[in-house]
């Protein structure tokens, strides 16, 4: 597995080209964006491979019985990345694809942040940042010791580490030695206003998580092979919670929007922009 020091990822994130499935998932996301005429596109694009590896290769679930006791639980703490989750849940058959085209519509079930109880397969209502890890810890505590129980995955973001509650939760995960809990961080090095280093510098981020008691692995968050290898055997370390810091590119998949802060969230999308996104994905 290729593991580079954090500084390498910060300055030059490796960018393997995307395969057909990664491009198709992003095309679904752009179609959703076109239907809703708004959305956190770049935040969803950075997340695609992280969710893809979980749903394609790691997690146990039954789309026909989304609350099956033995399922693995995935909490998308960075709820604004939900378009990527919706694309995967539809792809896996949790709900009909037609719901995607009602994104943010009055009677649709898919809003700009995911809601528990409304969307089959969504394990928690998120959107306010810094909540998901605590929810995951509570679930992991309740599930541990039960051999038939599923595992808990929390997908958060580096920007979310601005929230104090993230670190309160990190202390608790470590205190309880929750090895049935794995955190995957979409570390795209950007937040709404600017880079994470400009807004509120998090570095040395991996060292911080280590200091808070986590087993830390860093990986290229768009490299499916590296992600699969990193998650091949769980827990990553017995008796300790783990975090996979997935270094990603905000807007990954369309070179013209990669790293462009204006795509963090848009509520006005032109036909020209949509056409550029579709054609950009074919070139990716």
């Amino acid at each position: 597995m290729t593991t580079l020091p954090s500084s390498t990822y910060r300055t030059r994130p490796p960018s393997p080209s995307l395969d057909r499935r990664s491009r198709d998932l992003r095309i679904q996301i752009v179609r959703m964006l076109a239907a809703g005429r708004r959305g956190h596109l770049a935040s969803a694009f950075s997340l695609v491979e992280i969710l893809r590896v979980l749903y394609d290769d790691v997690m146990r679930f039954d789309p026909t019985n989304p609350t099956w006791d033995g399922r693995d639980r995935m909490i998308l703490s960075k709820g604004h990345g939900c378009m990527a989750l919706y694309a995967l849940l539809a792809d896996k058959g949790f709900f009909p694809e037609a719901h995607l085209w009602e994104f943010c519509k009055p009677n649709g079930i898919l809003g700009g942040h995911p809601e528990f109880g409304k969307v089959p397969g969504v394990e928690a209502s998120t959107g306010a940042l810094g909540h998901g890890l605590s929810l995951g810890i509570g679930r992991a505590l309740a599930l541990r010791g039960n051999p038939k129980a599923g595992r808990v995955f929390v997908v958060n973001s580096d920007g979310e580490c601005n929230e104090g509650s993230t670190w309160e939760a990190a202390l608790a995960a470590s205190k309880h030695k929750l090895d049935n809990l794995t955190v995957l961080m979409d570390c795209n090095h950007m937040q709404s206003y600017a880079t994470t280093s400009d807004v509120l510098d998090l570095e040395p981020l991996a060292d911080k998580w280590r200091a808070f008691g986590f087993h830390v692995i860093e990986v290229d968050g768009h490299d499916m092979a590296a992600l699969r290898e990193a998650l091949a055997v769980l827990p990553l370390r017995k008796g300790q919670p783990s975090i996979l810091i997935c270094h990603t590119v905000k807007g990954k998949g369309v070179s013209s929007i990669e790293g462009d802060l204006s795509w963090h969230h848009k509520n006005k999308i032109t036909e020209e922009e949509l056409a550029a996104l579709f054609s950009g994905l074919e070139e990716a």
């Binding site: 810094g130 605590s134 929810l135 509570g138 505590l141 608790a172």
Partner: peptide, 23 residues
């Protein structure tokens, strides 16, 4: 029994997570 420290934001989230699993 849990004594989780002066971290009320986390404690409420953790409590909610436990409740989601039937506690």
């Amino acid at each position: 029994f849990f004594m989780e420290g002066i971290s009320e934001a986390h404690v409420i989230g953790m409590a909610a997570g436990m409740a989601m699993e039937g506690r």
